[in-house]
Design a protein around this nucleic acid. Structure first.
Length: 223
DNA sequence: CTATGCGGGGGTG
DNA sequence: CACCCCCGCATAG
C-alpha cells in the first residue's frame, strides 16, 4: 500500500479529482516539482504557479483537450504517436515517431502521407494510445493561487512522439512533414528529473496489457 | 493554419 | 453517476 507520494507537497494527500478538498488551498507547499515533460505512469506533480510549461498544460506527449464537464479540472487525453506503416528505421538508427497534430483536421491530413524516410515507401499512421485500461492516458490540471497541480493516469503504450518544440520547428520550416530530426528538444528546459515519475499502483498495472507490435517485415529494398 | 479551451450532446456501463 | 468521444465555436499565435 505505497502512498505514491511523488509530489513534494508537504505530506498532504490529494487527488486531482477531489472536487471538494481543503488541501487545494494549502499554502505550505515546501517544494515544487521541476516540470516533467515526459510524465508517465500514474503520477502527480505540483508546479510553481509561474511555471510556463505547467501554465500551458504542456507535455512531450501529444495531448488534446477533452471535455470532462468540470470547469475546475482541465483534462487531456493522449493522441498516441505518428509512425511509419512499415516501421522502418532511419539512417540515424531511430524510428519514425512524429508528433500527431492536436487539431483533428490537421491530424487527419498527416495520416497517409508518405514516410519521411526517403528510402521507405511506407505511409504515416497514428498509433493510438491505450495506456489507461484500453483508453488513452489522461492528464489532469488544476490551478490554485499557490500551485498548479498535475496528475496523470495510465502508462503510455507507445513510443514518445518528437517533442513539441521539434515538431513546431519542423512545421515552421516547411509547413509539412519532411526529414525528421533527432529527438533532441531545442529548448533547454528539460532534464529536471526530480522525484516521482512513473509510479504505478498495482491495480493500474492490471489494465496495462498492450505493447505495440513492431512488424519489421518488408525490410525495404533500399536502392 | 494549428494549438488550446470550453461546453453541448450523445453513448456506454 | 462516471467516463468516453465527437463537434462546433472562439481565441491566440
Amino acid at each position: 500500500m505505497s502512498t505514491t507520494k511523488n509530489s513534494t507537497v508537504s505530506h498532504v494527500e490529494w487527488d486531482i479529482n477531489d472536487s471538494t478538498v481543503p488541501s487545494w488551498r494549502i499554502s505550505q507547499i515546501s517544494t515544487y516539482d521541476g516540470f516533467q515533460e515526459w510524465a508517465d505512469g500514474h503520477c502527480r506533480f505540483v508546479y510553481r504557479p509561474d511555471c510556463e510549461e505547467a501554465r500551458r498544460h504542456s507535455s512531450g506527449w501529444a495531448m488534446r483537450n477533452t471535455n470532462n464537464h468540470n470547469v475546475h479540472i482541465l483534462k487531456k487525453s493522449c493522441l498516441g504517436v505518428l509512425l511509419c506503416s512499415l516501421r522502418c528505421t532511419l539512417d540515424s538508427g531511430e524510428k519514425v515517431t512524429l508528433r500527431p497534430a492536436i487539431c483533428d483536421k490537421a491530424r487527419k491530413k498527416q495520416q497517409g502521407k508518405p514516410c519521411p524516410n526517403r528510402k521507405c515507401t511506407g505511409r504515416l499512421e497514428v498509433l493510438p494510445c491505450r495506456g489507461h485500461c484500453g483508453y488513452p492516458v489522461t492528464h489532469f490540471w488544476r490551478h490554485t493561487d499557490n500551485a498548479i497541480f498535475f496528475q496523470a493516469k495510465g502508462i503510455h503504450d507507445h513510443p514518445k512522439p518528437e517533442p513539441k518544440a521539434t515538431a513546431e520547428a519542423r512545421r515552421s520550416l516547411h509547413g509539412g512533414i519532411k526529414r525528421p530530426r533527432s529527438s533532441t528538444s531545442a529548448t533547454g528546459e528539460q532534464r529536471i528529473r526530480l522525484n516521482g515519475q512513473a509510479v504505478y499502483s498495482g491495480k493500474e498495472i492490471g489494465c496495462f496489457a498492450r505493447l505495440f507490435p513492431v512488424r519489421r517485415e518488408n525490410e525495404l529494398e533500399t536502392d
